[in-house]
Design a protein around this nucleic acid. Structure first.
Length: 198
DNA sequence: ACCGGGATGTTCT
DNA sequence: GAACATCCCGGTG
């Protein structure tokens, strides 16, 4: 059930901070599983100490250096997958990490994939939780979000209230000069510290 | 509600 | 060998 339209490549081919802000309210869709994005973080590539691309291209982050509109999926803490959308121009390695989403379709499938979730608000409230709920793994690294099985669409709904804060979970690039996290204040599907101010 | 620690293995120094 | 864009569980208040 795909109402609305898949975001075009031009949406992603911009500054990651603009993409991050505009992703709030958009819908991540894979088959009959869908969730509305409520929390994201922008990463600026080679000039961002918090980015995987800060020290240059490697086998892991190669997708970030490719064209915008593709999915960059990485493995962390020995057990979790996290997903980003590649932004900006090819070679810039800009990206936006998907951190929180509100389930809107396919909740039974999500619950099966996320047995530890006690409430529906636990299904997609975290970068690794989103990947688990959508069954996104390393096999999806590099796929095209404009033509592939995983897409982000706009359903024409109202733009949600948006707020900015510092990023989550970093040892570098988390200062006030890097306020590149966008979220919908008060939404229960927002992850991270209980800080709802920013 | 909040906090602390363990899980688990890839990536990079 | 350390770090890691995290999550879950079990403790305590």
């Amino acid at each position: 059930m795909t109402r609305g339209r898949t975001l075009p490549r031009s949406f992603y081919a911009r500054d990651p901070r603009a993409v991050a802000r505009d992703l709030l309210g958009k819908v991540l869709q894979r088959g009959s599983v869908a969730a509305r994005i409520v929390e994201v973080e922008a990463y600026l590539g080679g000039r961002d100490p918090g980015s995987h691309a800060f020290r240059g291209r490697t086998a892991r982050n190669a997708t970030m250096f490719g064209p915008a509109g593709h999915l960059y999926v990485y493995f962390t803490y020995g057990m979790h997958w996290c997903a980003n959308v590649v932004c900006s121009v090819e070679g810039d390695a800009g990206a936006v990490l998907l951190r929180g989403a509100a389930p809107v379709e396919g909740l039974a499938t999500m619950r099966r994939r996320r047995p530890a979730a006690r409430r529906d608000a636990d299904l997609c409230s975290g970068p690794a939780r989103i990947c688990a709920a959508f069954a996104i793994t390393g096999t999806h690294d590099g796929i095209d979000l404009t033509t592939g099985p995983i897409r982000i669409r706009s359903d024409g709904g109202a733009t949600p209230v948006r707020r900015v804060s510092t990023r989550v979970g970093l040892s570098e690039g988390r200062g006030d000069h890097h306020r590149w996290r966008w979220y919908v204040p008060g939404d229960p599907n927002v992850s991270g510290p209980k800080v709802r101010k920013g």
